[in-house]
Amino acid sequence: MEGFMDALRLLQFEEYGAIAQFTRSDAPGASCDSFSSLNLGLHVGDDPEVVQKNRRIAADIAGISETRIVYAEQVHGARVAVVHADDAGRGAFDTADAIKGVDGLVSTARGLLLAILAADCTPVLFYDPYAGVIGAAHAGWKGTAQGVVMETIKEMKKLGANPEDMLVALGPAIRGCCYEVDQPVTDALEDMYRKLATREPIPFRVSERAAERTMVDLPTLARLQAEQLGVPHGQVIDTSICTHCMPGFFSHRKLRGKAGRHAGFIAIKPRRLSLRGRMR
């Protein structure tokens, strides 16, 4: 991973022929106030024309046409859709046209950029360079509790992907230092954790402010789900960025629901590159 002013680029993915990055909120864009400055969310109350300009800027940063981007509706669930070349542009210009009812997208189409928006939830990117399969998922607490990361990997396997060959990246998200939740959320996430075959301690701790509340690290739970399905620990890349207490990314909680959205983007580059050997 390498940090740039405009985006976090995943160099491990690029080495194997992908475009993979997480955009930054503070990259040069056209939005103002709490949406400043590269807000990519059309659904958050920002001027739609300004957001479209920002989306063109983000596409330029990624080096791909905005007409080749596909967005999911993102309903805080665990459903995943397979998308194809003829889905290019879905959700790019109108939220009503996004892929309905899903929080994950997978594809084998070269040059098709999968997009996931976030502002505290974990954007997760997936890539099997040998099978030529990519994925992107939105893992909020509800999606995490329902296993959206595992569901994305399962859909990729149906397209020929092998978890042992996958790279997985966990984008900027609210972390255990700042994500305080109530008992129903704790119960749902504990139930998911108990179903995982892991000896790693649950990434929870009691809140210092209120004993009945819990501090949760959602990206760690996403990582454990990927490892449950067979992705090697060393092939899960965690940006380790907390959107709530670190600069450069939107936080829905910090801005009390008035935040813009950054994005995770992934595509297989249009021109096939030679792969230099297995990752393991």
Rank of each mutant, 00 (worst) to 15 (best):
I64Y: 13
G135W: 03
I116S: 05
I116T: 12
L167T: 06
I174V: 12
G91N: 10
A96F: 08
G101M: 08
A96I: 01
I153C: 07
V168D: 04
A81K: 04
Y71Q: 09
P48Q: 05
G91P: 09
D128L: 12
A115T: 07
C121P: 15
A62W: 10
A78K: 13
L105A: 02
D97S: 15
R175A: 06
M166D: 02
N54R: 10
I64S: 15
G176V: 03
G147V: 00
E190Y: 10
P184W: 04
D97N: 11
D120K: 04
R56P: 01
R55W: 10
V83W: 07
V181D: 08
A137S: 14
D187S: 12
V133W: 02
A188I: 01
D97F: 06
P163W: 06
A173R: 02
G77R: 04
I61E: 09
G104E: 05
V149T: 12
V149G: 03
I174Y: 00
A161H: 00
I64R: 15
T122V: 11
N54M: 10
V102F: 04
D128N: 12
G140K: 01
H138I: 01
A115F: 04
R55V: 05
T67V: 13
A78I: 02
P172C: 04
A98Y: 01
E155A: 11
G77C: 07
I99W: 02
W141F: 13
I61V: 15
G143C: 01
I69A: 13
A96S: 14
L189P: 01
R110L: 10
M156K: 03
V133S: 11
G101C: 01
A85R: 14
A118W: 02
D87L: 08
G104H: 02
V51P: 00
Y71S: 05
V70I: 14
S65P: 14
I61S: 10
A161T: 03
A109E: 14
V106N: 04
